[in-house]
Design a protein around this nucleic acid. Structure first.
Length: 491
RNA sequence: GUCCCGUUAGCUCAGUGGUAGAGCAUUUGACUUUUAAUCAAAGGGUCAUGCGUUCGAGUCGCAUACGGGACACCA
């Protein structure tokens, strides 16, 4: 700690640094070694009947200190909760007792003592001995109002976690949700795999990528926007059921439901179709809700949502008809479609194709209404370059998305497995890219080559994990379910 | 990218163009079952940053930074 730095510190921080000097005079180490513990706080509270009168030892952070002359109370917090400490001068001796009263909120100590209940019924530890373990040099936010400032909460998540217990709950729940997804898929014979995060050609979806550079190879690489094309290569290779649950990176706008890096789960299954995947999706979400929240009936920001399968299924054409009255089965030409869109107040360029118009109307007029889980099926081919064409109507694909609370929660389709068709669709994307569409797909020759070896009929599903966690943890912003959300640097 | 809002003590927040406020936290004292402990006293501020308007700016204006919200972009 340099002196010029100390000058910047506020009074509270100077006081705490001075306490370190006083501790050193007393031969107490401000930063010590591990302390042998027998329990966590919550274990004692939960098993009080068995532990009353027993000796226990704990490690934790002082969160409150109430001195009463010759006896003091403190609240000790660890990863499982809090417990009250009761320290008496005649138990620990005058010197230790006086030192205890100089502890700061935030300091970390090890204690051992006897479990008992105070007169007012509070389960506590009568401290027989304690050891200082680590000094806290910065004051924590206030005990009652906690830390509210969102900027500080996101930038200094460690403080948020210390003082806002519900934040810890959210992230524990997130961990359980991800664990249950893995368990669900593994129980059904899916193999978890890891494919590259740095791609020479970013593919698998429409999105702008982040670009990075490899020095030794002297080449640019792209942070992946989706694992899709690599997972399908694995289906070519003979893995019939695979999934990957990890980060994707998209260089796009940020919002309460978009973070530049986010967690995606993609599943691929050979010899299956999109009906199988709809079943898997609704069962998986129900399994996760049941095993983390204990119910498939949840409440998100005041809205009751019932995740119990089966979920409602509608084609995109049916959904648009239901919410706007426009029947795309009756629309023959692109021009008619554009006119229909304009008739309900949507601005659409004149040269827009029928399928894109349908999708625009869906996004503008339908999506937001789909609060209860709903599968929307059969997406237009123009916006689905990796999905299999429907035999019944080549304008559409065997693709579906699930919506909950008006948000897209997953995207899935029976995969295009015809390498010749795939190559043509890539070529069309390349033309659109040349025409200025930055998010059109790039040609991936190796992926086409893989398909040329032959791939069984396959279905794939991608689930936005952060949004699922938002719904299940009742979190209003994606930043509330990502420990360290992307932010500009301070200053 | 556009618009709106916010930034005052460690934290949570008041603040009407005229001496910078409260609660908690902190320091000192009292108190051996308190628990938002209590009681008594004290200290604590580059009002985000910069430039203006004004006799005088936390307050009015402009710009910048960071954050939040909405929209746009976007699966």
């Amino acid at each position: 700690m340099t002196t010029e730095h100390v000058e910047d510190l506020n009074k509270l921080m100077i006081q705490r640094r001075q306490k370190i000097e006083e501790m050193q005079k007393m031969n107490i180490k401000p930063y010590g070694k591990k302390y042998k513990t027998s329990h966590h706080t919550a274990d004692i509270v939960e098993n009080f009947a068995d532990l009353e009168g027993e000796q226990v030892s704990l490690m934790g952070r002082i969160m409150a200190l109430r001195t009463h002359g010759k006896a003091s109370f403190a609240d000790l917090m660890d990863m499982k909760g809090r417990i009250q400490l009761y320290v008496k001068v005649d138990m620990v001796g005058e010197e230790k007792y006086n030192f205890f009263n100089t502890l700061d909120i935030g300091d970390i100590i090890g204690v051992s003592g006897i479990v008992f209940k105070t007169r007012s019924g509070q389960i506590s530890i009568r401290v027989e001995d304690f050891r200082f373990m680590s000094k806290s040099l910065r004051p924590l936010p206030e005990k009652w109002h906690g830390l509210k400032d969102k900027e500080t909460r996101y930038r200094q998540r460690y403080v948020d976690l210390i003082v806002n217990p519900e934040v810890k709950n959210t992230f524990e729940l997130r961990s359980k949700i991800i664990r249950e997804i893995r368990r669900f898929l593994e129980d059904r014979g899916f193999l978890e795999v890891e494919t590259p995060m740095m791609h020479p050609i970013p593919g698998g979806t429409s999105a702008r990528p982040f670009i990075t550079h490899h020095n030794t190879l002297d080449m640019d690489l792209y942070m992946r926007i989706a694992p899709e094309l690599y997972l399908k290569r694995l289906i070519v290779g003979g893995f019939e059921k695979v999934f990957e649950l990890n980060r994707n990176f998209r260089n796009e706008g940020m919002s309460y439901k978009h973070n530049p890096e986010f967690t995606m789960m993609e599943v691929y299954q050979a010899n299956a179709d999109y009906y199988d995947m709809m079943e898997l999706m609704e069962e998986m979400v129900a399994h996760v809700a049941e095993n983390t929240l204990g119910s498939t009936k949840i409440n998100y920001q005041g809205k009751d949502i019932d995740l119990t399968p089966p979920w409602r299924r509608l084609t995109m054409v049916e959904a648009v008809k239901e919410y706007t009255g426009i029947d795309f089965n009756q629309i023959e030409s692109d021009r008619e479609a554009v006119e229909a869109a304009r008739s309900i107040g949507l601005e659409v360029p004149s040269n827009t194709s029928k399928g894109r118009v349908l999708n625009n109307i869906f996004e503008e007029k339908v999506e937001g209404n789909l609060i209860q889980p709903t599968f929307i099926m059969n997406y237009p081919i123009e916006i689905s370059p990796l999905a299999a064409k429907m035999e019944e109507d080549p304008m559409f694909t065997y693709r579906f998305e699930a919506f909950i609370n008006g948000w897209e929660m997953c995207n899935a389709f029976t995969e295009l497995i015809d390498p010749i068709d795939q190559k043509e669709r890539f070529e069309e994307q390349v033309r659109q890219r040349a025409a200025g569409d930055e998010e059109a797909h790039m040609m991936d020759e190796d992926f086409v080559r893989a398909l040329e070896y032959g791939i069984p009929p396959t279905v794939g599903l991608g689930v936005g994990i952060d949004r699922l966690v938002m719904i299940l943890t009742d979190s209003p912003s994606i930043r509330d379910v990502i420990l360290f959300p992307t932010m500009r640097p301070e200053q």
